[in-house]
Design a protein around this nucleic acid. Structure first.
Lengths: 197, 197
DNA sequence: ACCTGAACACCGTTCAAGT
DNA sequence: ACCTGAACACCGTTCAAGT
């Protein structure tokens, strides 16, 4: 009943193909290299064919963002408590960002679908209930952690391996240590059991 | 001795003019509307004249970022302690970001000159010494706070007043409350006097 | 229904030329 | 030294046409 397509030419490409090709180009050549003509070329199709599957370039970018967020793996052990669940969310999100460094500015800019965001946060939010945290407070903590992870990743990949005047190139573990310190501080601040001013 | 320009046609525009015009366009029409032709038009000059003062469009963007960061006002009272100095830095930086919402993605993407970043952080770092915090730890705290402020601002201005499908439009104080909670957590986490896990 | 080539209105940037 | 118009090699997107 739904979407019963009768007759007509069978499609050469799908919406998913377009999104996958876009991600491949971003990863390989960077965000600036992502053109409608380039996506078409990668799929062996004219650029104009893409408009049959997505309304415009912005829609491609939005779809890329949601696809990448969906691919985040949040590994929350069964016996994890609220602080550890927050940490697992942060680590999983950061892993995805560093796997797609050229896409980080996109993730920072394009809003994520509500459903996709909920699915990402769900494992952590589950543990907040067990810890007796109010729903609003839990959401605030999750969003704050995500925002820190994103901001930190932007700083880390901010001068991508394309710029000529890359600063002395921070030592290997520099960003990891900074990330851990910042995340620890935030999680500690959010999960302390209400003490003084 | 230095830069003694003798003879030649006097300049109609300066590098500063280009940067100021760029910021005006970004604030008024958004980042996408910032074109070399547009900047030229605003200054009553052909687009190609700009290349006499800045090497290319990316250089304009970099200059805009550094100009905006320079304009941040960090109000650290004379008797402020380390945690309050961190807070003042966060508030001042956020104020600038929300004054230039269309420029936030730029601030998130373009690296800031080392000198400009140092000047921004200096007042807070001063107070860290008085508090007996190690220099490295102080820098980590400052950078983490900045990264949180930036990430939060991205979330707040992420769906700018151009998008049609703006979500229910979060209630007025929503982002302010989230910001305060996240900042409090981070500052508390960074300034606690080293207790157990 | 899906794909295509040609065309339009833009970009950033280069170049040779003007004053 | 500084500014300019014309031109080049790109963009995203629309349109009328093909199968």
């Amino acid at each position: 009943m739904t979407g019963a397509r009768r007759g007509g030419r069978p499609p050469l490409i799908s919406r998913d193909d377009v999104v996958a090709a876009a991600i491949a180009i971003i990863d390989a050549e960077g965000l600036d290299a992502l053109t409608m003509r380039g996506i078409g070329a990668r799929l062996g199709v004219a650029a104009m064919s893409l408009y049959r599957h997505l309304p415009n370039r912005d829609a491609v970018l939005a779809a890329v963002v949601n696809r990448l967020v969906t691919e985040v793996v949040v590994d929350v052990p069964a016996d994890a408590r609220w602080p550890d669940a927050l940490r697992a969310l942060a680590l999983g999100y950061r892993e995805m960002l560093l796997r797609h460094p050229h896409a980080v500015p996109l993730l920072a800019t394009q809003p994520v679908d509500v459903d996709t965001g909920m699915a990402l946060a769900a494992p952590a939010l589950d543990r907040s209930r067990a810890a007796g945290i109010g729903a609003d407070d839990a959401v605030t903590a999750v969003q704050s952690v995500i925002v820190f992870v994103l901001g930190h990743a932007l700083a880390q990949v901010g001068t991508p391996p394309g710029a000529d005047d890359a600063p002395p190139a921070a030592p290997a573990g520099y960003y990891d240590r900074w990330f851990t310190a910042g995340l620890d501080a935030m999680i500690h601040g959010f999960t302390r059991t209400g003490d003084g001013p």
